[in-house]
Design a protein around this nucleic acid. Structure first.
Length: 882
DNA sequence: GGCCATTGCTCC
DNA sequence: GTTCGGC
DNA sequence: GCCGAACGAGCAATGGCC
């Protein structure tokens, strides 16, 4: 039987005793479950005792491990499924025993019931897997927390149980916080958890080489376990730092025999992926996370390369390239219903648990762990899970929600241990384990390079390796930026490796490029600082939506949104007119544009809010009501030539040569090249007066860097500047419980203004950004005393309603980019438009104002005046009045 | 057919 | 879209 | 500086329900 220790994910050669997987799904949740069900929603002031059940943002499902885990880890000296004594009982208690090791006789039915799509091979694999190959999540724990002498480095049993039994849990504290550093606070309990964390990190160092160990040049974790000497790092390698070099040294510790938990050619067990996620969730350093993922990818490449694509998709929370428009079409509401169907627990209870735990994954894990399964289920495989996701995405029409729910429910009942939570999170499209696209691309590059160069063998790491790894990352990132499709990228990587990747996966007309983005800056002086000796130019930042227009040689036109969604059918007007605006001899082009709403009568740009009222799908030319004007500002492709690696100066020339601008239809963005501070400030004011959001400042010699929020483009908006932009004084009247890293504190607040005449508080906006973690914690505490059971009769608000209502007391100053007419919020109701209130765009907290009373907020009249003075509105209005 | 909740998309 | 925080 | 993960308003489309 294979050692299935996932310590190997970390590159450690040490074989680690694995703890039975049931550990994590069974025992700990029982405790948690109890708590969850006996505890009302937090932060209720009355419930000082036991107010916050499962507060730490559990990035991993391991966080729930309680005292039993400790015990089991001690006992778990053998590799499962030969479960050590004691575990069986726990599993039985959790209703999981039946699902652990399906017997060959019992399983086929279950498999058949799951899917008719899995072939015989898969079925067989499922069975063997389930019997003896299931890597255990416990092993992950062992790898990250426990050790041979685990007792010394893991939280003591007493500590753990103390946490468990403590009646006065502070918000956010029962479980060790996996990732972010906890808000500093001095309570006794608060101290316990960091200790745990520290211990874990320390162990991590021993395991696989933690960052600090690497950077100091010698703390190499492998000291004991990994005697392989780090290569000399002083060689002259271009473009890579010591960290990368040190990191490269880890790659010869990859051990397929430890990681490969299934037979070559068989489908990748979903459990393998879940365990990899679990391992990643416990880390916060990017290098370590990347290495974990690299090792997982290498294993897949070595054993079942055809599953690499679904593995990668599941890692990114995607199910298809965005331009293909394939979407799951499910959200929390359907997921909760599916979970309810799968577990028999009521929606209400599950919703309540979501409020408390802040994570549907945890809710699902918990719900499953106490569930008794009727059948022995076959183990899930990655291709099966992925195919089910695609099936869900393909459903539409009558009863489609019910059918989706059915599939999800089946997935959930087929999942076990840590799989459940990750299925749930994958369906939500956010794994929240500190892993996203950029990291996946790097890991992919490394994995392919290493498998090609070294294969499964261990090889001394030469000094050039770090360099080649870095080059590989760049090349893969570039390829993906220019052709954002994992289908293309991975197909090519598997077939040809990294060689000539640039020539195989590259820009193609008809496939959207990741758009180049700009960074926020706080003022003209910051711009001048950043671009001290560099030539730059400024363009108006129009308030519309990004559009990448592809004009192809065959005459076809495609339009993509900023997120690479295909928006072609939304803009039939653009599709029909644009080919006429190409200069003679132009056969193909890709233009980067901003689309704004445009009033043809008055020849004026209209506000963003007008643009959003356009129909979205299958629009017919004759049905277009809101006309648009395109401001082109870049040209990425012209007559068969890819221009992204040309300078902006050259691309602008190409743009000019490509199109024949037409007033009110297609124009080139207004720009100015100057480095005079005063002149720039005037240009900025002009831009605002013209109804735009401000300026985009660009260096002239820079290439087009897709998807990077590059410092070659800077965003200059009035509302970024200190003392400029609209601010409002508002009072807090409600709040919502936070999710994820905001579990245990409020995640968002409902703000209101006071109407003196009506003597009422009118909701103006929700707010959820601008808060430090410390402040959120303080607010959770300080607002508690203002909680009221139900909203005052003199509160006017829309839906959805907050989880918690407050007595109007606390006044905050908030900033916003714009004021909008709101169908939802009640502020200044009817003052600017009958039956409608006012809200604000991009609200964020500036500061708490202890010097103001609840009745000293911005007034409805002030708000209405501000709206009427708003440049964009005024601009349109003036025009309309002509 | 109208109303509602949900979802995904735009601002990124 | 804005912002915070870890590395 | 990069990356990820919290959170905003508000629109149209979708599907369920009456």
């Amino acid at each position: 039987m294979k050692q299935s220790s996932l310590a190997a994910f970390l590159g450690s050669k040490a074989k680690r005793p694995a703890v039975a997987a049931a550990v994590q799904a069974s025992a700990p949740q029982d405790a948690l479950q109890q708590k969850a069900e006996s505890v009302p929603a937090k932060p209720s002031p009355k419930k000082r005792v036991r107010k916050s059940p499962a507060p730490e943002p559990a990035k991993t499902f391991q966080a729930e491990a309680g005292p039993k885990l400790k015990r089991l880890r001690k006992a778990g000296d053998t590799v499962q499924p030969a479960a050590p004594e004691g575990i069986e009982d726990d599993m039985a208690a959790a209703g999981l025993s039946g699902s652990r090791s399906p017997t060959p006789e019992a399983a086929p039915q279950a498999i058949a019931s799951i899917s008719s799509t899995q072939d015989a091979d898969h079925t067989e694999a499922i069975l063997t897997q389930a019997e003896d190959q299931k890597p255990s999540s416990g092993a992950v724990l062992a790898s990250a927390v426990g050790t041979d002498d685990g007792a010394a480095t893991t939280p003591s049993a007493s500590e753990a149980s103390e946490t468990d039994e403590d009646d006065v849990l502070e918000i956010g504290e029962a479980a060790p916080k996996p990732k972010t550093k906890r808000a500093s606070k001095g309570s006794k309990k608060e101290n316990a958890a960091p200790k745990h964390k520290k211990a874990r990190l320390k162990q991590g160092t021993l395991e696989g080489g933690q960052l600090d160990a690497e950077s100091d040049g010698d703390g190499e974790g492998g000291k004991k376990k990994n005697p392989a000497k780090r290569p000399v790092l002083d060689s002259k390698v271009v473009g890579v730092g010591t960290k990368s070099l040190a990191e490269a040294a880890h790659h010869n510790t990859f051990d397929l025999s430890t990681l490969g938990t299934w037979q070559a050619g068989k489908p990748v067990p979903f459990a393998f992926l879940a365990d990899a996620f679990e391992a990643i969730a416990q880390e916060s350093g990017r290098l370590v996370i990347t290495r974990l993922l690299v090792n997982a990818f290498r294993t897949v490449i070595a054993l079942t390369p055809q599953d690499l694509l679904p593995v990668v998709y599941l890692c990114t929370g995607q199910i298809a390239p965005s331009h293909e428009g394939i979407e799951l079409g499910i959200g929390d509401a359907i997921l909760i219903k599916a979970l309810s169907q799968a577990t028999g627990k009521s929606d209400a209870i599950l919703k309540q648990q979501l409020k408390e735990s802040g994570d549907l994954g945890i809710v699902a894990t918990k719900a499953r762990s106490t569930q008794r399964t009727m059948f022995k289920m076959s183990a899930l495989t990655v291709p099966f899970v992925f195919k089910t996701f695609r099936d869900i995405a393909s459903m539409e029409g009558h009863k489609s929600q019910e059918r989706k729910r059915e599939l999800i429910s089946k997935l959930l009942t087929s999942s076990k241990d840590n799989e459940t939570g990750y299925i749930m999170r994958a369906l939500q499209g956010k794994l929240r384990i500190g892993l996203a696209e950029q990291t996946v691309l790097v890991a992919l590059a490394h994995a392919v390079l290493l498998q090609r160069e070294v294969g499964n063998a261990k090889k001394a790491v030469d000094a050039g390796l770090a360099n080649r790894l870095e080059e590989a990352s760049q090349s893969v990132k570039q390829a993906y930026s220019q052709c954002p499709s994992y289908d293309d990228l991975i197909g090519t990587l598997l077939e040809h490796g990294l060689e000539n990747l640039k020539d195989r996966v590259h820009f193609r007309a008809g496939i959207p490029v990741k758009p180049m983005l700009a960074k926020p800056t706080t003022g003209v002086s910051e711009v001048l600082n950043k671009f001290e000796d560099i030539e730059f130019t400024c363009e108006y930042k129009y308030d519309g939506q990004r559009a990448q227009v592809h004009l192809m040689e065959n005459g076809k036109v495609s339009i993509y949104s900023r997120n690479a969604e295909n928006d072609t059918s939304k803009f039939p007007d653009v599709v029909s007119v644009l080919p006429q605006l190409l200069r003679p001899g132009v056969t193909s082009a890709v233009l980067d544009c901003e689309v704004v709403a445009f009033d043809r009568g008055t020849q004026q740009i209209r506000p963003f809010q007008v643009l959003t009222t356009r129909a979205r799908k299958d629009v017919k030319l004759e049905d277009v009501k809101v006309h648009v004007l395109l401001f082109a500002f870049d040209c990425l492709f012209l007559n068969g030539d890819v221009l992204v690696e040309k300078t902006l100066t050259e691309r602008r020339k190409a743009l000019e040569s490509a199109i024949e601008p037409r007033q009110g239809v297609l124009q080139v963005a207004t720009s100015k090249t100057s480095r005079d501070l005063a002149e720039l400030e005037v240009f900025l004011d002009d831009s605002v007066a013209a109804g735009t959001e401000g300026l985009i400042v660009k260096t002239l010699d820079s290439t087009y860097e897709p998807s990077k929020r590059s410092s070659h483009w800077l965003k200059l908006k009035k509302d970024y500047m200190e003392g400029a932009g609209d601010t409002f004084d508002v009072v807090v009247i409600g709040a919502w419980h936070g999710e994820g890293k905001r579990t245990g504190v409020f995640g968002a607040f409902l703000l209101a203004i006071y109407d003196d005449d009506a003597e009422e508080y009118q909701a103006i906006s929700k707010i959820g950004t601008g808060f430090s973690e410390v402040l959120l914690k303080e607010l959770a505490d300080s607002l508690r005393e203002h909680i009221i059971d139900s909203p005052r009769s003199y509160y006017k608000f829309g839906k959805p309603e907050p989880h918690v209502w407050f007595d109007a007391q606390k006044v905050w100053e908030v900033k916003a980019a714009d004021i909008s007419i709101s169908p939802k919020h009640q502020a200044a109701l009817g003052l600017v438009e009958a039956g409608k209130g006012i809200s604000i765009r991009f609200p964020r907290l500036v500061r708490v104002r202890d010097d103001k009373t609840a009745e000293q907020t911005t007034s409805p009249e002030q708000l209405a005046d501000m709206y009427r003075n708003q440049a964009a509105v005024n601009h349109g209005k003036q025009a309309a009045d002509d």
